[in-house]
């Protein structure tokens, strides 16, 4: 197998210093192949957005910082390169779009300018050339009347249009990887479907890989090839969509899937997961999920489970799984 496009190993992100240090991302590992779509699923506070920001070295610092792990991308360890080199990766090789298209665009610059500037910085284009490319990009992401829209400011555009502008800006330099952090959460349902369709189209056209971060399991099912389920800053389960959704192995994944409303099952009450997502300050010892887990055992309170291979390409971190394919402990995930 060739080297994956992006390979994250044992990533740790912590907040605060010394005794007040809190671990927000704890030994997270995953890989993304070129052209593939990976979904990272989890509730708020699971560390999924921080994981994405850490790949681009954009964790707000202080108070946060990357405390360990490796991020290999296109054959280089992004943790080891200089900030100048990192700037040449951001926006050029890895694009990123965010949840709130209103606050993610600068209110005092025209949308045309905000799409064009990445081209000027990374490809050294002149103002006129960059502007022409920006216009073509805006037309490509489906903005009607693009020449007029170019000169408008974010507050003059609808939410869906703003997210299209964000996509145009993120893809301006044809990156090989797009990280989309909850790209449709703030949008109306009909707009959501359009944006997702657009992302899929552009992905096929440009042959880029996509990391889609979401809490929406429906979006995952229709968009992604493989999925990583996160809980409490750790990876709970990982596999293809058929594996994870069809044969969930981690109790958390199972409960998560059962809580999706379905037209086939006529139920009065939707099952919910008892308890609440723990905050960073009150993360339990051992397996992060044990206080809410129906199958919790004594060992779950003491140690964190290592990932177990359930079937080829499908792994989960749970002591309740038969330990038939123990894999070597992932750096940072054990102990």
């Amino acid at each position: 197998m060739t080297e994956p496009l992006l390979s994250v190993e044992g990533l740790r992100v912590v907040f605060g210093q010394g005794a007040r240090e809190q671990v927000a991302v704890d030994g997270v590992s995953f890989q993304v192949a070129a052209g593939e779509t990976l979904g990272i699923v989890g509730e708020s506070g699971s560390g999924k957005s921080l994981t994405a920001l850490a790949v681009l070295r954009l964790v707000p610092s202080p108070p946060g910082r990357i405390a360990g792990g490796r991020v290999r991308f296109e054959g280089r360890d992004l943790a080891g390169i200089s900030e100048r080199e990192m700037e040449r990766v951001r926006g050029a090789r890895i694009g990123m779009i965010f949840q709130e298209p209103m606050s993610a665009l600068n209110p005092v610059f025209t949308v045309g300018e905000q799409v064009a500037e990445a081209l000027r910085v990374h490809e050294g284009l002149g103002r006129r050339e960059a502007s022409a490319r920006a216009l073509a990009l805006l037309q490509r992401v489906g903005i009607a009347d693009a020449p007029r829209r170019m000169k408008q400011y974010p507050h003059e555009l609808s939410g869906g249009m703003r997210q299209r502008v964000m996509i145009a800006a993120a893809l301006a330099c044809r990156p090989s990887l797009l990280i989309a952090d909850e790209p449709t959460t703030a949008l109306d349902v009909t707009i959501q479907a359009q944006i997702l369709a657009l992302l899929r189209e552009l992905q096929r056209e440009m042959g880029m890989a996509v990391v889609l971060i979401t809490h929406d399991l429906g979006v995952v099912a229709q968009m992604v090839d493989r999925v990583v389920v996160m809980y409490g800053g750790r990876v709970a389960e990982e596999g293809t969509v058929e594996q994870v959704f069809g044969r969930p192995s981690h109790p958390y994944t199972r409960l998560l899937l059962e809580s999706i409303p379905s037209l086939d099952h006529d139920r009065d009450r939707l099952p919910t997961i008892p308890g609440m997502v723990p905050t960073l300050a009150e993360l339990p010892p051992g397996c992060r999920f044990h206080p809410r887990c129906p199958q919790a055992m004594a060992v779950c309170r003491e140690r964190a489970p290592d990932a177990v291979t359930v079937e080829p390409g499908h792994r989960a971190a749970c002591f309740a799984l038969p330990q038939i394919h123990p894999v070597e402990a992932q750096s940072g995930a054990g102990a």
Partner: peptide, 26 residues
């Protein structure tokens, strides 16, 4: 602390440009 500053950095703009252009005008 605004999101658009993070966006500007995610676009790979040099820090000087993020501050002098995107932040300063605001």
């Amino acid at each position: 602390r605004n999101d658009y500053v993070r966006t500007a950095r995610a676009k790979g703009l040099p820090r000087r440009m993020v501050v002098a252009k995107h932040a300063l005008k605001n």
